[in-house]
């Protein structure tokens, strides 16, 4: 009586353990061998990473040695001047006020966003940005709050560089702009156009007022630096210059086609 019982017990035990092993393909110590099912190149001599990366390093950058100097200048300026000011601003300003300032300037920025959406004949985006401008300027009290984002109208950036790219203008040589950071010839032109468009439209009279009150421009600059998360050195690589260059180009391409 007992012996057959023990054998069946043993057998079931063996079978169930065999089953679970077949399901998970785990080792005795519980290791699941996550790389086992990957389809590897049999000779392990594929050079796809090298090919992709070397290809990605091909960015038109004829002014590289100048650009690198500017990159180091920006890095130093950021560490020794810009970021201490931003930290001080954050320290003395209550969070609510900081958000208000950010929203206020962001609302002004929707003016070029709208113009460029229209220039690219993007009907839906133009309507949404118009709605944003109207809502935030009225209910949001001159843009200090951003009720539009909460109502499902997220901010959609469009600048003149993107408009030029949309109509097929090539990026041109890569440029590292003093204080402003990575750009290229096309986007630098776009920056100038957007800036003059902003002062022409003179939304909420801010452009005019900042002519006599340079502190408004200063506040805008500090606010912009405090909302941009990028820090020089954060990629922590001796090749940060190349990596920023690649990311800048690719993100612009993405923004243009979208």
């Amino acid at each position: 009586m007992v012996k057959p019982l023990a054998t069946t017990l043993l057998l079931t035990l063996l079978m169930t353990s065999g089953l679970t092993q077949a399901q998970h393909q785990t080792d005795d110590d519980g290791f699941k061998r996550p790389l086992q099912h990957l389809e590897l190149n049999p000779g392990l001599d594929q050079r796809e990473f090298e090919r992709s990366t070397l290809g990605a390093l091909n960015v038109y950058d004829p002014l590289e040695s100048w650009n690198r100097r500017v990159y180091h200048f920006n890095y130093r300026f950021d560490q020794w001047v810009f970021l201490p000011i931003v930290d001080g601003y954050r320290y003395i300003t209550p969070t609510v006020v900081q958000h208000g300032v950010t929203n206020f300037f962001s609302n002004l920025g929707d003016v070029p966003n709208l113009l460029n959406s229209v220039l690219q004949l993007k009907a839906k985006r133009s309507m949404e940005t118009t709605a944003r401008l109207l809502l935030n300027t009225t209910i949001g009290v001159a843009g200090l709050w951003d009720p539009a984002s909460r109502m499902g109208l997220p901010k959609q950036r469009e600048d003149f560089g993107q408009t030029l790219g949309f109509y097929g203008a090539p990026a041109g040589p890569y440029l590292m702009l003093p204080l402003l950071g990575p750009s290229n010839l096309r986007d630098t032109g776009g920056l100038v156009v957007d800036f003059s468009a902003k002062s022409q439209v003179n939304w909420l009279n801010v452009a005019e007022a900042s002519n006599s009150h340079p502190e408004i421009t200063l506040l805008e600059t500090v606010d912009q630096r405090s909302t941009v998360n990028f820090r020089y050195g954060q990629l922590n690589s001796p090749f940060e210059y190349e990596k920023i260059r690649y990311f800048y180009n690719e993100s612009r391409k993405l923004l243009i086609v979208e």
Binding site: L35, L38, E39, L40, N41, L44, D45, Q46, E48, F49
Partner: peptide, 8 residues
């Protein structure tokens, strides 16, 4: 090192 040897 082996991870970049996958057939993609």
């Amino acid at each position: 090192d082996r991870l970049v040897q996958t057939q993609v």
